[in-house]
Amino acid sequence: MHAHCHNHGNKPQSKYEEALGKYNTEISDDEVREAVKKIIAEKVHENDNIETKKFLMGSIELTTLKTTDSETSVMAFTEKVNQFDEAYGDLPHVATICVYPCFAKTVSETLEIDGVEIACVSGSFPSSQALIEVKVAETALAIKDGATEIDIVMPVGKFLSGDYEGVADEISELKQVCGENAMKVILETGCLKTASNIKKASIIAMYAGADYIKTSTGKLEPAATPEAAYVMCQAIKEYYEETGIQIGFKPAGGINSVMDALIYYTIVKEVLGEKWLTNKWFRLGTSRLANMLLSEIEGKETKFF
């Protein structure tokens, strides 16, 4: 028996507790708040320019997740992305169209623009409260119908009750279903409350197979916050230093202004650096931002999407 598997005769440490042990997860909410305040005060203004806004346009995951979505509305939504290319050829197209799995086929049959990913929220979004068999089936069907990326919600209830192994098992099982397709794990940071929890959830999700970690579903308040983004980026950075594996970051929910987007961009730039400032590794989950960015880039009120 190896002594290191045991913490003083108690039950053996799970491999996730062992993984968490390599990171500092005892972080103070106040320190995070101060660090974010400093970044916003000192650094955001230098990114408030047209170049950055054009870049942000190309990082948008244009999202429709409404009860009222239909094949007709999703087709029209996708056509907008096709037409954008013609209307604004000098601007980058959005990174992704994000829809429910029942519309993956509609998007993949309508989309004509190369390089736009088709993301589906899966695994009983937004609650993640379903049997794993249902989550597996939904994910596999989304991919079969043309989804190139999958966004799942971490089982938050399991996490909060301390069942880290259960959380990790679900994530890794769904990653197996995704195979080569990128999988984003939504932490629903508003439910996690503390910086320490957000850091732990980030690390567990990455170890279990997340290709991206994402702040929120946008269906609960509070959604994304700069503080949560800071902690998640810190976790991505430490995970990269520890493993050499680069993980993407996606703030989503509550991105209500161009300034909000610039703040997330600046946090990524300051914590993670240039290597993450591409539309592969940094994504923004939002729809309202597209017209706002367009208006600022064009210098006039523009409603395209």
Rank of each mutant, 00 (worst) to 15 (best):
H8E: 14
G9I: 07
N10L: 13
N10C: 03
I27S: 00
S28M: 09
A35G: 03
V36F: 00
V44D: 05
T52R: 02
G58C: 05
L62P: 02
K80M: 13
V81S: 12
N82D: 10
N82L: 11
Q83T: 11
Y88S: 12
H93D: 15
V94K: 05
A95D: 07
A95R: 06
T96L: 00
V99N: 00
Y100L: 12
P101K: 05
V107S: 04
S108F: 04
S108N: 10
G123A: 10
G123P: 08
G123S: 05
V134S: 15
V136N: 12
A140K: 13
A140I: 02
L141S: 11
D145P: 05
T148G: 13
V153F: 11
P155W: 07
L160E: 03
Y164M: 11
E170K: 01
I171V: 13
E173M: 03
L187Q: 06
T189D: 08
G190D: 00
L192T: 09
K193C: 05
T194Q: 00
Y207D: 13
G218M: 04
A224E: 00
P226Q: 01
G244K: 11
G244E: 08
S257T: 13
M259D: 14
M259S: 10
A261E: 02
Y265N: 09
T266H: 06
T266G: 02
E270K: 14
V271K: 08
W281F: 14
F282Y: 08
T286H: 09
S287Y: 09
R288Y: 14
N291K: 01
M292C: 07
M292Y: 10
M292H: 09
S295Q: 08
